[in-house]
Design a protein around this nucleic acid. Structure first.
Lengths: 204, 204, 204, 204
DNA sequence: GATGAATGAGAATTCATTCAT
DNA sequence: GATGAATGAATTCTCATTCAT
């Protein structure tokens, strides 16, 4: 599966990653429309034209950047999911908190990115959808585990996950102006709140 | 408070409403950046220039459109909140369902509208915030009532409301392609799911 | 067929004609690639952007300009064909001379325009082809008339027309630098030369 | 005149020839403006930058390519002119046919190449002109021979040659879509048609 | 009140050219 | 000799905004 890559190709790959890191940051901060290639180029200390040496256009760059952002995000959550010990509740709560922290601190405009412009070619939209599925899977695994163990109860698995994801993604909107310690409290509150979605005995 | 308005002013008012209705529709469909004034004007069968007779610019038009949309939405929820009989849970669930129905059926891209461009002047952003607060207030009233009666328990009132709102707003994204009866079931599932956020005894 | 047009529409039509006249001039002088919209706009004393109020893009402007150029050209030849008295030879020779004069004096780069960029959409290419057919028809009518009267003899009608057209179109290339009276002589020589293509008794 | 060339220089020469062959092909297919160096490089399996080791720029490459194409073309016609036996008419007709066959089969867009961008430096334009003269000379020699022998009669030698050349060059435009046998017939018709340009007794 | 026309400031994209390695 | 990378200037296209009529 992994073909041997020359030194040159690896170098190009690293450059692409640098660009994508910067682009993911910018797109994640501001959303697609509010970013122009000048901005991306400037942060990389190159000129606009250079970006076209690596990407066919703004759409392609954005798509790749979103994927990078998503891979990074999902990867960190997966790593955490693997590392955390304990019952499903402990693990799910950790995931939620981690997700919100990343959203608020690093990709405050990520929500915008999921609202992919309808004008994009299907190929690009498909890639975004794919990426979201992987991301969802991390939470789903823990949730299903908790259900099987009898730790959790839900009305419907997918709906619960959607609701969780929506709330986590919008967190940046209302945590934007808070001081650091207030944010920490907000994160805890949100995590505890969302844990109720999977609670047993949800009422008298 | 209400000054007497001339026939001319009423006529202007009606025209403004027409424009706002169309604008709300378009902005709600595509989001701020993807709408251009040409499109708005075309749907109204007027020319771009005419819009400037009623609004100072694109930002102002969008703001007013969002407010119109929000007022309509909030107004209907308020009416419902007043009409529904029963305990807080019944009323809250009815509100949730109504909100989701409006979101999915009428303003499928309303989510985009809350993502106001960062470049907007503070005056405009404030008005949007204000509108959201009114909207929030409808839910908050029922929630607080339920808490006082001992029907509900929450981790934190505001956070709970934010999470609810986020989930309801994103519903259009995942209910988009469903058949009518599937949608009905999805609405129920979502309402039941979100009711867990306020449930007493949320676990052992 | 002719719908009633408002004063406004007529005015717009006149503006479009002005633009097309200028564009035809420029494209006819330099060819598609060597003209940029800045040039066209400058000659019209407007800004680039204004052109987009009348034409969807450079291709559309160029196509319309080529059509204008062709209509003008063909129209003048048709007028002449109707006006000239005498036998077919007299009329054909007059057509040839007129065609060459227009080519050299007004549309020296017209040849370039018939070499339409392969990347153009078929719709545009079709329109150009159509226009060429009308142009060809003027010569064909006189040629066929001469043949029927027994004035002319040709190897093959279409081939003869193609050869004539080619020679006439390329005239600007070799008449470019000549003085006025030399040009006149060159036109006569070319006309006499091409008349041999339709001559009876073409050899011993 | 011919200096001794080292092995290195010969190698370079061969490389230059390869590049020119590919460039002539591409420029002949699409014309100057529509070809970019990326395309040329790609067909050669090298990178754009490498071309600059052999040529000072796009203009120089194009000029050399056109010359190469012209030399090849002229060379083959010269060889044929020397080989064909018979009267001037036989030889001229053979030249015409050969020219058209090469144009249609091998350099269908050669016409574009004679339309050298007006922006080229004089040095380059001169070289193109020079090459055209050599090419012209092949036909001129036979034509003059025929005139001296009393086989041909023309209105003006140069004009006749220009007309012939124009018609032959444009042949690809109207022979493009024909089947092979139809093309053969078209070639014959064109040759016969053009022979009328030099016919004695061109009419009553 | 409304319109047609024009503007001007971006924004994306292309591509010949340069150059260090 | 060749390459990958970068540049920068040119060019097409978009669109909110202005304004005379």
């Amino acid at each position: 599966m992994d073909e041997p890559v020359s030194r040159v190709e690896r170098k190009r790959g690293r450059r692409v990653e640098q660009i994508l890191a910067v682009a993911a940051e910018l797109f994640g901060e501001r959303g697609y429309d509010a970013v122009n290639l000048e901005d991306v180029a400037e942060r990389l200390d190159v000129t606009k034209g250079s970006l076209y040496y690596y990407f066919a256009g703004k759409d392609q760059l954005a798509t790749a950047a979103i994927e990078t952002l998503g891979d990074d995000w999902t990867g960190r959550l997966e790593a955490m999911a693997g590392a955390v010990e304990g019952d499903a509740a402990t693990r799910l709560r950790a995931l939620i908190r981690a997700h919100v922290v990343i959203a608020v601190r690093e990709y405050p405009a990520a929500l915008r990115l999921f609202l992919v412009p309808r004008t994009w070619p299907d190929a690009l939209r498909t890639r975004i959808t794919e990426m979201r599925r992987r991301h969802d899977q991390v939470f789903r695994a823990v949730l299903v585990d908790g259900l099987e163990r009898g730790e959790f109860a839900v009305v419907a698995t997918s709906t619960t996950l959607q609701a969780m994801h929506a709330a986590m993604s919008q967190a940046p909107l209302w945590c934007a102006g808070l001081a650091d310690d207030e944010q920490e409290r907000a994160f805890d509150e949100l995590a505890d709140t969302l844990m109720k979605l999977v609670a047993l005995n949800p009422g008298p």
